[in-house]
Design a protein around this nucleic acid. Sequence first.
DNA 1: CTGTTAGCGCTTTCAT
DNA 2: ATGAAAGCGCTAACAG
Lengths: 329, 329
Amino acid sequence: MNIYDIAKEAGVSISTVSRVLNHKSNVKEDTRQRVEAVLEKHQYRPSAIARGLVSSSMRTVAVLTVDIRVPHYARTAYTIEREFSRRGYEVMLCNTGGERDETAKYLRVAVEKNVDGIVLVGSVFNTICTAPEIESLLGGIPMVLANGKVDAERSYSVLVDDGYGIGLAVDHLVKRGCRDLYYLKDLDTVSARLKCEGFLDAVRRAGLEGGRRHVIETDMSLEGGVRAVEKLLREGRRFDGIVCGEDITAAGAVKAVQRCGRSVPDDVAVTGYNNSEYARICEPPLTTIDNKPELVAMLSVQLLTSLIEDTDAYSSCTIQPEIVQGGTA
Amino acid sequence: MNIYDIAKEAGVSISTVSRVLNHKSNVKEDTRQRVEAVLEKHQYRPSAIARGLVSSSMRTVAVLTVDIRVPHYARTAYTIEREFSRRGYEVMLCNTGGERDETAKYLRVAVEKNVDGIVLVGSVFNTICTAPEIESLLGGIPMVLANGKVDAERSYSVLVDDGYGIGLAVDHLVKRGCRDLYYLKDLDTVSARLKCEGFLDAVRRAGLEGGRRHVIETDMSLEGGVRAVEKLLREGRRFDGIVCGEDITAAGAVKAVQRCGRSVPDDVAVTGYNNSEYARICEPPLTTIDNKPELVAMLSVQLLTSLIEDTDAYSSCTIQPEIVQGGTA
DNA sequence: CTGTTAGCGCTTTCAT
DNA sequence: ATGAAAGCGCTAACAG
């Protein structure tokens, strides 16, 4: 059932059907009624593909993320999807695994499908995507990076000041009286590096002993947190505060500290990052940093929508995280 | 830059370009080379929309889920997306919130965009979608329900035997010596009802005291688990085993039991459901039921692909969950 | 092996 | 207010 069938049955031309379909005003009232009756009778839905071919827009955006199973990305992607849906766009979901080739492949498909815009969620994309490459791949499609940055035409950013966020955690521990702080670095993205620098700066500012020796690299996982603390214990290092780059790692750290018979937060204080459900399940619940994924998502959608529809003014922006007091620090 | 531009520059007709693009064999080798050079030079990508108009397929499937932020759905959707990507399909992500109207809206859009197939993840859709309605909305688009069922033409299911799954948990508790079991019912989907029935059946089989009085309704959340146990305590009920419909609720139950000074699992054993990361963060880690979302996702994709491409034989199937031993039971 | 032509289902001038 | 016709970028049948 296409627009011709409808036109024939309503005894009008396809132009008139098209006008009715698109709520144009220049249609006589009773003609409109007649057409709408036929439309309704057949539950007619115009083909978005044919429309897309004419308007060169399918009202679709691509959202690229490392792995939707990571709660932080899930929250971001969720809000992005809901907001775009509200605005009449569909979301094409892409899990790149943080891999260069997968990212390039998805971007190519996005271009072929003529998406209206692209959102890149997470700072991995800084490392994977070089500006000229992006520019040639994208060919003018607007892009927003949620917590990332690429210096390309028509690419904008909604950034999170993760260095500042970790700084909040350090300040909090220092205020509690912690003197021997360690940082568990559990990833190697730009954002992870900013967090690490934020730790080192804040420790220096507080006049405590710091430096790279106080940074332990580990996996972003429960086990990663456990292993890092076990390493500290094994090496006989003294510590009364552990700052983690992710809640899940912090949860592991808490377990490891408790297993060796020390109390959290009295003997060792611990902080997480993301203010996720993981933080609440932990016992005691984690003191953690809220990096506001929902806000980042909202702003990203707003920004990209402005870019696509060329309506409002638009510009990149930066979010400040906040600390959320739990029971571990 | 379209196929005409390429044809002109390569000094051939658009058909020849199309043949090269689609790797057809009937093109002279040096013609092919000439065309490919031009293609490469301009980084030409054919428009998927135009192709879609001809082939009436955009190589896209819609995945409807309640809320991608729920880890179980995230795992399922992740695997579905990756598998479809591997097969050359893109995934349109839809968060329905379990709402009838949103679901209908998404299905309408999916039809307009002429998706090749639809996956419904979760048993909420049983409640929301009536067969005739689905059938009229879908108009022949194949659909697979991951852990759901609808009696419509071209609709198939990959089911999980959740009643059996909860039965495993009950049997395990009984074997441990638990005599006073309670079930925390934290949702009201078809699957949740099956779990509840599974509990009641298994308790009866074991010859223990059971019945509806042993089912506590609560929210699917950490707080929901806490509140349910607090209610049991407040009412002075005796209990040594708590079976939960979700890991997150179980995590809350564990907290509440521990807060009142009882030991898990010695005084009260607890089981979760989903074998999620939540289970591992819990202290002690939850004994839980693995309902194999990745397997369900894989089978769903296989099934839908067969349906779309009309290749293999296809049929609905059912997965048996397994118990995963943790420290809470 | 290659080119010509007719659609795919719609929107959008341009006439009337 | 309505209709005829061109065209969006491609594939595929047909002709040569």
